[in-house]
């Protein structure tokens, strides 16, 4: 499923990386530990996290993730959004909690 479709269905805000909205999402990964994501996330996953600093983009792009979804209404800062635009890797956001967001994404990907 494309990032664009997930953003629409889960009513996520698209903060940046609009050029990557056609990235294909093949799964999800939930973690706020960057080393855990570095070590264990897989290419093409959407990463759900509450971390919103610039380093999330380094991790997401190095791991070829499809998108980052920020929870709890957290917003990326300017530098993070710039990096997201450069890498064509969208940052999305929701006011929902991690549990609800992961559950909704799971249901969408595994109907």
């Amino acid at each position: 499923m494309k990032v664009r479709e997930i953003a629409e269905k889960l009513e996520l805000t698209v903060y940046s990386g609009h050029s990557g909205l056609d990235n294909e999402v093949i799964g999800g990964y939930v973690s706020d530990l960057l080393s855990d994501v570095m070590g264990n996330a897989d290419e093409g996953q959407a990463w759900i996290t509450l971390q919103n600093h610039k380093n999330i983009m380094a991790v997401a792009s190095l791991k070829d993730l499809a998108a980052v979804i920020l929870v709890k209404g957290l917003k990326p800062d300017e530098a993070t959004m710039m990096h997201s635009n450069e890498e064509n890797l969208p940052i999305l956001g929701t006011d929902a909690e991690t549990f609800e967001t992961a559950g909704a994404l799971f249901k969408l990907l595994h109907p």
Partner: peptide, 14 residues
């Protein structure tokens, strides 16, 4: 920031 979980060096070795 989500670093310092004690996974860095083991990840590097792995």
């Amino acid at each position: 920031m989500g670093f310092g979980a004690g996974m860095g060096l083991p990840n590097m070795k792995k």
